[in-house]
Amino acid sequence: MNESEARSLLEIADDELILGWRDSEWTGIAPLLEEDVAFSSIAQNEIGHARALYELVAGEQGTTADELAFDRAPEEYRCTRLVELRLLDWEKTIARHYLYEQADAARLEQLKQSDDAEIAGLAAKIDREEAYHRMHAQMWFDRLKDEPRFTAALDELRPLLDAGRDEHSPELAELWVEMTMVRRSQPAGTAW
């Protein structure tokens, strides 16, 4: 794995981590109980993908998945602005879900062609789970496509797909404070 490969794996891992963290905010308060359970699974899958990707990079860099996920400064994360936003409106959540899954599919397709067998293998595994996320996103898209608030959300969020990864929103820093607060309460290396 060369440096640019590691960098692009970290980008994907950070996207999946932060999106999974955001999606899990719906756990317990989603619009329908059935959907609550379904969306929780999606959040868990995304975090599972992040973990597998971090592990691959961590093996090269002599660190751990948890350290990569939690112990970097907020400005070191390489996620896109799209996943950082705290969106507790269902129409925006589904719009993001739909946009993200499309972009993610293209990215995974490329990764599956990697010369590195480990990377290609993991990408294929992740893609098999993402296929269900795409079905889920499509199902909701079909359901909401005539709702003005949903189409407005798509228009609002679409530009963020190309917003780059160097600038972060203040919401990421806020999320970071919350997601690391227990971990930071004890010296580094403490088991949890």
């Binding site: 059935e34 359970v37 379904a38 699974s41 269900y132 079905m135 889920h136 199902m139």
Partner: peptide
């Protein structure tokens, strides 16, 4: 049993409820 809007939702939700 579960409640769903149509067969597609039912299929997804059944998978989550009884197979995750």
């Amino acid at each position: 049993s579960l409640e769903a809007a149509n067969h597609d939702f039912a299929e997804q939700y059944a998978k989550e409820f009884y197979g995750r």
